[in-house]
Design a binder for these strands. Structure first.
Length: 522
RNA sequence: GCGCCUCUAGCUCAAUUGGCAGAGCAACGGACUCUUAAUCCGCAGGUUCUGGGUUCAAGUCCCAGGGGGCGCACCA
């Protein structure tokens, strides 16, 4: 994605992340108002004796005819000293300025990149005021497209206007901002001084756009379901709570859209998807933000094998569209995303990585002592399925580089998944692990309302036993199921983690525009 | 929640065994008609995160608190 000319400084590859640019030990501070006077912005009590050009109200609109990217596309290969005779109007932020006396150069940044401004005093109106512009000011410029004697493509400043002054000091024009706290809190500064940061969010936007298109091409219909849930459900997580005054009712911010989307499958919408925010009242870490974005989709008449094919094909498509290849790097390590991905059962993978052979027929005492041997705090309520899952997560999951589909989860830990067609006690559920992280969770959906009620009641028992992430009984969902949920494959993908993978960044805060932080004391 | 690290000018960073708190960029004043982080001269800029303590003397050492980063726990 060469929309931005990279300055010759340390790259932002993930290895440079912590070592060079994002060293967490570097200083912190906040951008404070510039105390310097602004000649273009006299204070209210400035007198008429102030020898500065009068501040004029910026225009309400401005109409650029082109941008830096289009200019580079059209005029990128001009020889030195070319005068094209073509006029251009561009707008953006002044990022650099080099005044030579009667000749000035500037660097303008717009959403497509940067381009040089060429301002000779003989042709640039209000030349002194132009030279007095501050870094960060928004300006609009009209003039001839040309190249300098050194061959730099430029727009000659033959007309210009101040669109908005900046009243705060520009960050270091070479180093930008490196303090992570400032980058997250003042993302508006980070985005225009850190090209790599913009690149990540542009990539994120493209991921979601491409995903929509891909799903729509396969006859999936996008829907929106409630974010306020009277009963939290569809995942195991603590919810945020809120209150509706007129109804005088407690409401929960959704932890997953799952149960509403499956109601729509009952309704006959055979292929639905939703891309939206979900909220989980859990810890914050480089891989967890309390609000994050999920893609969930449901496909009638499909099972979990179909979901595996869908995931690997979708991710392959995204990698090819965004990078032109499925051979990527993450954190300096190679990863091959081309379909098909490996499929292996949880127990096979435990055998590979922990060197132990266990399954649901293993005596529970043996499972308990194995788990304790791995340092897992075992609760008495844990059955064999939960113990196997705990052992998998402790010994195996983070060691999987993948991509790999981890299949056949124990029924005990999968309250919404359908029984495995061949293996009693297991479900047709899988997670895809890529770069040691869960990318998605999917299953052949449980369609039997009697079985679903039993599973929900079991969850309630676990909740009563102290598990505050266990689900509760959702009577309306059970009623919907009683009308008949067809065989259905369902899938949830964490968009943030997918973007982290595709953008090769190490923290979820690098892909969330405004991550959750403690309030700043200003 | 626990542990480790960190916080100095608007930004990026210095400050030796505890000994006058500094530089570059930005800003401000000046010089300069082909620069590319322009260059050169000058000026100004500080609650060293906060509050205690030790000391003749604290950015530096100690205690408590706050923000942030990372790890652990949690998060299927």
């Amino acid at each position: 994605m060469e929309w931005f000319p990279r300055p010759p400084k340390p790259s932002w590859s993930s290895s440079a992340f912590s070592a060079v640019r994002w060293d967490p030990t570097v200083g912190r501070s906040s951008l404070r108002p510039s105390t310097a006077g602004r000649p273009t912005m006299p204070s209210p009590d400035a007198t008429e004796s102030t020898p500065q050009p009068p501040y004029t109200q910026p225009p309400y609109t401005f109409e650029p005819t082109t941008d830096s990217g289009l200019l580079r596309e059209e005029f990128g290969e001009l020889a030195e000293g070319t005068e094209t005779g073509r006029q251009a109007t561009i707008a953006g932020r002044l990022m650099l300025r080099r005044v030579q006396g009667k000749l000035a150069f500037g660097t303008l940044q717009d959403s497509a990149g940067r381009i040089q401004l060429f301002a000779p005093s003989k042709e640039t109106p209000r030349f002194t005021a132009f030279c007095d512009l501050n870094l960060g000011d928004w300006i609009g410029v009209t003039g001839e497209v040309m190249t300098t004697r050194k061959g730099e493509l430029s727009v000659k400043v033959q007309e210009w206007t101040l669109l908005a002054p900046t009243r705060r000091s520009f960050p270091d024009k070479w180093h930008g901002i490196s303090d992570p706290d400032t980058r997250f809190r003042q993302r508006y500064v980070d985005l225009w001084v850190t090209p790599e940061s913009r690149e990540v969010f542009i990539l994120r936007s493209r991921v979601i756009s491409l995903m929509r298109r891909w799903l729509e091409d396969r006859n999936f219909m996008e829907v929106e379901t409630p974010i306020f849930h009277p009963i939290p459900g569809g995942a195991a997580a603590r919810p945020f709570t809120t209150h509706h005054n007129a109804l005088d009712q407690e409401l929960f911010l959704r932890i997953a859209p799952e149960l509403y989307l499956k109601r729509l499958t009952v309704a006959g919408l055979e292929r639905v998807f939703e891309i939206g925010r979900v909220f989980r009242n859990e810890g914050i870490s480089p891989r967890h933000n309390p609000e994050f974005t999920m893609l969930e989709l449901y496909q009638a008449y499909a099972d979990y094998s179909d979901m595996m094919e869908l995931v690997e094909n979708l991710v392959t498509f995204l990698a090819l569209e965004l990078h032109g290849t499925t051979s990527l790097q993450y954190g300096g390590r190679d990863i091959e995303l081309a379909a098909p991905w490996r499929r292996a059962t949880m127990e096979e993978l435990i055998a590979e990585h922990a060197g132990i052979s266990i399954d649901l027929s293993t005596p529970i005492d043996e499972l308990r002592s194995l788990a304790e041997g791995f340092g897992i705090p075992v609760k008495p309520s844990y059955g064999p399925g939960k113990l196997i899952l705990e052992i998998y997560e402790k010994t195996t999951e983070s060691a999987l580089w993948g991509p790999v589909f981890v299949t056949d989860y124990p029924k005990e830990v999968s309250p919404l998944s359908r029984d495995h067609r061949d293996k009693p006690g297991y479900t047709e559920r899988f997670e895809a692990i890529v770069a040691g992280r869960e990318l998605c969770n999917a299953f052949s959906e449980l369609i039997d309302p009697v079985e679903q009620r039993a599973r929900m009641e079991d969850q309630v028992a676990q909740r009563d036993a102290g598990d505050d992430e266990a689900m509760v009984v959702d009577e309306d969902y059970l009623r919907a199921m009683e009308y008949g949920l067809p065989p259905t494959g369902g899938l949830g993908i964490g968009i943030d983690r997918l973007v982290m993978l595709l953008a090769d960044v190490p923290s979820i805060r690098d892909v969330v525009l405004f991550p959750t932080l403690r309030p700043e004391q200003i």
